[in-house]
């Protein structure tokens, strides 16, 4: 007979294997009243260790746990899919998401005030991809729609919780650190274009 602790590890593995969405500890607890909360938490940890040298890993994402293939196997798993991967998000989409993530619930007007450009189209794309949702209307003049990020947003960027996003002071630090790296590459690239064009 299997020991109880081994049994719960296997049960959790089976549930994670079948689930298309992250499963939270709360969800496990409600699904498995036979086991104590602590046993379940320990089992999740144990399962994580078991997968250490396997091609799968248990990822803490969007407030729960989900099985995923490890990055090392990306190139092989990719061959399974005939359809092309979803396109990456545009710079406009990433910028808009950044504003929404920090300022939510936020109206289109506020987003546009920060970005300095019309953001109507990009908001439509983000709604379509379910990365943002409408949260209601502001109590201000014109009662504009308010937008917020979704669980799909967390999932898309591999975040467990919004608090994992860098805090304002960390952004300041990033600004200083990145000053020399990416921005320069980008600047060089654009500068090149401009000088070529000027000649």
């Amino acid at each position: 007979m299997i020991m109880k602790s081994e049994q719960v590890v296997n049960i959790i593995e089976a549930l994670l294997f079948v689930s298309e969405k992250p499963l939270s500890v709360t969800r496990f607890v409600s699904l498995l009243p036979e086991f104590k909360d602590k046993e379940i938490e320990a089992a999740i940890d144990r399962l994580g260790q078991i997968y250490d040298d396997r091609s799968l890993s248990i990822i803490k994402i969007a407030g729960g746990y989900q099985l995923a293939t490890k990055p090392d196997y990306h190139q092989w798993v990719q061959r399974l899919f005939t359809a092309r991967a979803k396109p990456r998000l545009s710079q406009a989409a990433l910028e808009t998401l950044s504003v929404i993530a920090y300022k939510q619930p936020v109206s289109r007007i506020e987003i546009e005030a920060i970005r300095g450009v019309n953001s109507d189209g990009v908001l439509g794309t983000l709604l379509e991809r379910n990365l943002v949702s409408i949260r209601g209307r502001a109590e201000t003049v014109g009662r504009p729609l308010l937008y917020g990020t979704t669980d799909e947003f967390l999932h898309y960027f591999g975040l467990n919780d919004l608090v994992e996003l860098p805090r304002p002071e960390e952004i300041e630090a990033m600004l200083k650190k990145n000053e020399g790296e990416i921005q320069e590459d980008e600047a060089d690239e654009k500068a090149e274009t401009m000088t070529q064009d000027e000649t």
Binding site: A68, V99, R115, P166
Partner: peptide, 25 residues
């Protein structure tokens, strides 16, 4: 203000790259 969000957008792009290497059911 804009520069701050541009920086976050860069961070999101980095996360996107990382996350695209994982496959889920």
């Amino acid at each position: 203000e804009y520069k701050k969000y541009k920086e976050v957008a860069y961070e999101l792009s980095r996360l996107e790259t990382r996350q695209r290497l994982h496959f889920y059911r």
